[in-house]
Design a protein around this nucleic acid. Structure first.
Length: 803
RNA sequence: GGGGAUGUGGUGGAACUGGUAGACACGCUUGGCUUAGAACCAAGUGCCGCAAGGCGUGGGGGUUCGACUCCCUCCAUCCCUACCA
């Protein structure tokens, strides 16, 4: 009579036990530390599949490391400020605070029910004054270090709702709620000088163990380029337009200069010229998102202004182009239609000159690649790179330009005109910005009146008006500020006197950071910047926050990201209830490798559940009777032992070097399938029982990080609650002497096609192998009447006859 | 537009260093058990073909004794693009 598997009961009691015995609460000790961090969630209401996947990966690795005697720290918290809380407040009439805290309580229960081994004593919520007080302090230190400044910048403005819209709230140029045509508006905002660290953010990527693709994305985002700033005298004035270019070698091909619609000159012209005014209006209709701007049709208008080419002294028209960004470089570009795709299209459209100044094999314009110069008086025949240097030198001599390093990276605008965020700790005395004194931190976010929609701080007089001449800043921080340093605060989470402490130096850096690939650039870049700035202010040690990075792919359904708008979401909760957390965890880890996207499949969950039940049925009916190791084993016994240790070796390797959990699980399944029936029967011999016990122990141990509840339960059961070691410690060791093989299956190919197989000894030399291979009937048939040119033998694998 | 990925049976995926393509699982088919179904167990399952055999890793080309793997080129899908987190 077997006992039925009841996941709910087993899992709840295990989770209760772990919390009671504080199994996952970490403190510094003598062991090697391992800080394993998964990106904390936005508390949107309930866990989604992406969370389940992310956190399962983190927990599996944490538990594996714990079994290998690491001192593991795995905390969890909440990225609790942000836009969705305000949206919920408007539609559900609950305060963002209540909504957020209720969500957190619910999601925390869900995380616990997944069996995730977090140190909840270090839990953080970014919306708590205890947390953001320190964020305000960091801002203060940034300010004092000169890393903060205010400047005008562009936002999406909804004229009906009178609010600033996020890019995602702008749909087809209209506000998502009001439907009003969105306007681009310029307002004064706080910026953090991340560009001061541009070079180091680039070079210290070499210090981290991150996926190459993420490093490449960051490098390209920072975008260090070498080029020149070239001055074009505005005809009839003494003023210059300065353009940055990475291709000074193409300067003789310049046929127009384009300025941004937000450039001072454009704005001035618009005051007097109706046509330009309406053109600028039109430009404002495109959302400020880069992707939208890039997709928009390239449009321009002639300004009537001409500039003097610095070398040829010819007159060149100045255009306003909707593709020129004010924030990048100088807001002015030189148009070289012969050698730039976008300039080529623009020039073709408006009938501007197109001159070829770089030669190419087929001379089909535009020629994007570098080459030799032509039509460039005095520089003809030079190679591009060489010519660039000489041209820069000549410009420099004439005070018309100079070589320059330019970054694509822009300073970080941290101001948000919203309620549910961390207040920026600034006071204006007679309009002059002043930091809030440290003793007066935190500047608390005011509560809202009951049942009130969120009121921006700028409309909350009680908050901002301290006296007639003294007002508070009413912008709140970008939520990326909140998430840029939480990894460090976890290490000192309960210290109310200091932002960081000696525990921080023990735990940091994060040994493994796990999160979605969608954060590959912004969040990771901001956190790296914070770490470096905090280091330079003496608050943290080390150059980089995250030593190793694992970017997990997304969970898809029907080939698309799960989202409410597409209506293709799958709620993990029902699966946890139906199958248990162990099955959900196993499914998540089995279905795809961590880095790849995972296509949700209902029926595959059944498969995971079936395997869990098979393990249950195997172990629940037997006990480890401490059978002594026999002196001799029969062939099939040795075979099972070999398979057992082979599996252990494979799983260890998959965990340790590849994070390849799907293949690890596949090999555990294979091991379970390979147990001979008679080993499991009631009249099995002691020696068979010994081998089966060994196999069960390895299965339970290797399964423990993935399915911790059932494996721990069965472990205790199997050992009569009297095991020598706890399952959650001591990863088993491979008995390598069991793995040696004396013969293998040789694959025989003729001209690369498989024609036969034979068992041969691993020690046979090539001559002997050839003889055996030629004697295989099908091989002989294929060799008949042909002469063998050569035979290639790869030891332990294959022989290929070339005929 | 720019940047980064991915593409293998009906499905998710495996093949780690250029050496048997399709491990493991889902699904499906047949059989067993059952009054019936569910569950479970056994066998089969890349495609074409009665078979011998041939074809086959997004398309086309190349390197190699040998290519899912390396090179060139084209196509499709996904992520990021600075105010979603």
């Amino acid at each position: 009579m077997t006992v039925e598997y009841n996941p709910k009961q087993i899992e709840e009691s295990a989770q209760k036990k772990w919390l009671q015995e504080k199994r996952f609460e970490a403190r510094p000790d003598d062991r090697q530390k391992y800080y394993c961090l998964s990106m904390f969630p936005y508390p949107s209401g309930k866990l989604h599949m992406g969370h389940v996947r992310n956190y399962t990966i983190g927990d599996v690795i944490s538990r594996y490391k714990r079994m290998n005697n690491f001192n593991v720290f795995q905390p969890m918290g909440w990225d609790a400020f942000g836009l969705p809380a305000e949206n919920a407040a408007i539609s559900n009439k609950v305060s963002p605070k209540e909504w957020t805290n209720e969500n957190i309580e619910h999601m925390k229960k869900q995380l616990i029910s997944l069996g995730l081994g977090y140190d909840w004593s270090k839990e953080l919520r970014t919306c708590e004054p205890d947390y953001y007080k320190w964020e305000q302090l960091i801002f203060k230190k940034f300010y004092e270090k000169g890393l903060v400044y205010k400047k005008k910048s562009l936002v999406n403005w909804d004229p009906i709702d009178e609010t600033v819209l996020a890019n995602e709230q702008v749909i087809d140029g209209k506000g998502w709620r009001s439907g009003a045509k969105v306007e681009i508006k310029e307002i004064d905002q706080w910026f953090v000088k991340i560009t001061d660290y541009a070079d180091e953010l680039l070079t210290s990527l070499d210090e981290v163990d991150w996926p190459e693709n993420v490093k490449t994305m960051q490098k390209n985002w920072i975008g260090k380029s070498y080029g020149a700033e070239i001055k074009y005298l505005i005809d009839g004035t003494k003023d210059y337009l300065t353009a940055f270019t990475t291709r000074p070698d193409t300067i003789y091909g310049v046929s127009f200069v384009a300025i941004s619609p937000n450039h001072k000159i454009a704005l001035n012209l618009a005051k007097e010229d109706q046509e330009i005014e309406s053109f600028l209006q039109k430009c404002k209709e495109i959302s400020s998102a880069e992707a939208d701007m890039a997709k928009a049709e390239k449009l321009g208008i002639y300004t009537g202004i001409e500039v003097i080419h610095p070398l040829t002294k010819q007159k060149i028209p100045v255009w306003i182009g909707n593709f020129v960004l004010l924030d990048y470089g100088t807001g002015v570009v030189m148009g070289v239609p012969g050698h730039d795709q976008r300039d080529f299209e623009f020039a073709s459209k408006y009938n501007l000159n197109i001159t070829q100044v770089i030669s190419a094999d087929d001379n089909k314009l535009p020629v994007i690649n570098k080459g030799s110069l032509i039509n460039s008086d005095g520089f003809n025949g030079l190679k591009s790179d060489d010519a660039s240097i000489k041209i820069i030198n000549q410009l420099h001599e004439n005070n018309l330009g100079e070589g320059l390093v330019q970054f694509r990276l822009r300073d970080w605008g941290v101001s948000r005109q919203r309620y549910w965020g961390c207040p920026i700790p600034i006071i204006y005395e007679n309009g002059k910005a002043k930091l809030v004194e440290e003793d007066n931190l935190p500047v608390k976010l005011p509560d809202l009146p009951k049942n009130s929609a969120p009121i921006p701080l700028s409309q909350n007089k009680n908050f901002f008006e301290l006296s007639e001449n003294v007002k508070r800043e009413t912008d709140t921080f970008d939520t990326f500020m909140d998430s840029s340093w939480y990894y460090a605060r976890f290490t000192s989470a309960n210290n109310n006197n200091e932002i960081f402490d000696e525990n921080s130096n023990y735990w940091l850096p994060v040994d493994l950071y796990i999160g979605g690939i969608e954060h590959a650039i912004l969040h990771l870049l901001y956190s790296r910047f914070f770490h470096k700035a905090l280091r330079d202010m003496g608050m943290l040690e080390g150059n980089e926050p995250f030593k190793k990075l694992l970017t997990q792919g997304m969970v898809l359904k029907d080939g698309a990201k799960m989202s409410k708008s597409k209506g293709n979401t799958v709620d993990p909760q029902s699966y946890i209830e139906k199958y248990g957390a162990d099955t959900v965890r196993l499914y998540m880890m089995f279905t795809a490798p961590p880095e790849q996207s995972l296509e949700w499949s209902e029926s595959s969950v059944e498969g995971a559940s079936r395997f869990i039940k098979k393990v249950w049925n195997l172990v629940i009916v037997r006990k480890n009777n401490n059978i002594k190791e026999p002196s001799n084993f029969l062939k099939d016994e040795l075979e099972l032992r070999r398979k057992t240790h082979d599996t252990l070796q494979k799983v260890t390797n998959d965990f340790e070097t590849r994070f390849s959990f799907n293949t690890a699980i596949a090999s555990i399944m294979e091991l379970l399938n390979s147990i001979p029936e008679d080993f499991k029967s009631a009249d099995a011999t002691d020696s068979q029982k010994y081998c089966l016990n060994e196999c069960i122990i390895i299965i339970l141990k290797t399964l423990n990080p993935i399915a911790p509840h059932i494996s721990e339960y069965l472990w205790d059961h199997f050992h009569n609650f009297n095991a020598k070691d706890a399952i959650e410690s001591s990863w088993p060791k491979v008995k390598t002497d069991l793995l040696e093989i004396s013969e293998f299956e040789l694959v025989v190919q003729v001209n690369g096609k498989v024609r036969g197989k034979a068992m041969v000894s691993i020690d046979d030399d090539q001559t002997k192998i050839e003889t055996v291979a030629k004697n295989i009937e099908n091989v002989a048939m294929n060799l008949e009447g042909k002469s063998i040119k050569k035979a290639i033998y790869i030891k332990g694998k294959i022989i290929n006859f070339v005929v």
